[in-house]
């Protein structure tokens, strides 16, 4: 295990350059360029606002619906984009995997890194929006840092697992979009976590993304601190997934080039 980390460290420049490549390539020759990073969550915010604050009323604990959904959609888009690109990254770079050696986890990790840049850009818009709605976050909003770390850990775990699985079973390619959609409904994005019936809460917060998204909302919009029962179960599961996912990835790495 230790030598894997030494290798990854030796190839850290590749991780950086491949992340840059992912970003550059994604927006080359597109008219709006990196504005797409903002447009994606913004468009969904508008749609959800029209549907869930005009057509069907969703109770948002008194928060204006646009910022209620945007604060959730920004990190969610980061998660979904990472999955979309990261899981396919090994198979999409088949030519490289079958011909040159480098630590393979660099490819999925770079996809997460590139999606993080998008996330950062749309988070700037979030700050502007909060200003507009007169929301002044206090010290409690510093919780976003551990929340973000937890989210990146979860994303990396799922992406590593998914990318390795896709090498074995191309079915994964069809499962991913469906999984993202189901996962989105299992996460408090269009509705508040408080609308989940109490008897299902424990089960509900086993989904790490539920605690994370709910957490962003609490610390940024409501000025509340995190409650452990929404975060801890998901955090433990994330840790298990990350360790398990990494081991599974490195165990299957030797056969990637043979199977891909």
């Amino acid at each position: 295990m230790f030598e894997h980390w030494v290798k990854l460290y030796q190839y850290r420049d590749l991780l950086w350059l491949w992340t840059l490549r992912e970003i550059r390539v994604r927006y080359k020759q597109s008219l709006l360029g990196v504005a797409w990073a903002v447009l994606q969550p913004l468009a969904l915010t508008i749609i959800f606002t029209v549907i869930f604050s005009y057509l069907v009323r969703v109770d948002t604990d008194g928060i204006p619906y646009p910022i209620f959904s945007y604060v959730a959609l920004v990190p969610w888009t980061f998660f979904a984009t990472s999955l979309n690109f990261g899981i396919a990254s090994l198979v999409n770079n088949m030519n490289l995997v079958t011909k040159i050696y480098f630590p393979r986890e660099i490819l999925p990790m770079a996809s997460v890194g590139a999606a993080f840049v998008d996330f950062f850009v749309s988070a700037v818009i979030l700050a502007g929006m909060m200003l507009f709605y007169g929301i002044r976050p206090g010290w409690v909003s510093l919780w976003v840092v551990p929340l973000l770390v937890l989210q990146i850990a979860l994303t990396t775990a799922v992406v590593l697992l998914g990318a390795a699985f896709l090498v074995f079973f191309r079915d994964v390619r069809f499962i991913v979009p469906l999984l993202i959609q189901i996962w989105m409904y299992a996460t408090p994005i269009i509705y508040p976590a408080t609308s989940v019936p109490l008897q299902f809460r424990t089960l509900y917060f086993l989904n790490p993304m539920a605690g994370i998204i709910d957490g962003y909302r609490r610390v940024l919009l409501l000025g509340e601190s995190l409650s452990p029962d929404t975060i801890v179960p998901g955090a433990i599961l994330t840790l298990v997934l990350l360790i398990g996912g990494y081991i599974f990835f490195k165990r299957s790495e030797p056969v990637f080039a043979d199977l891909i």
């Binding site: 590749l14 350059l17 491949w18 490549r21 490289l96 040159i100 480098f102």
Partner: peptide
Amino acid sequence: IELGAGFHPELTGRENIFLNGAILGL
């Protein structure tokens, strides 16, 4: 064996030198 592995057509020659070099372990 594989000259220009990881070259991306949209990137410039210079950008690809860095990328390809890193893939080869530089």
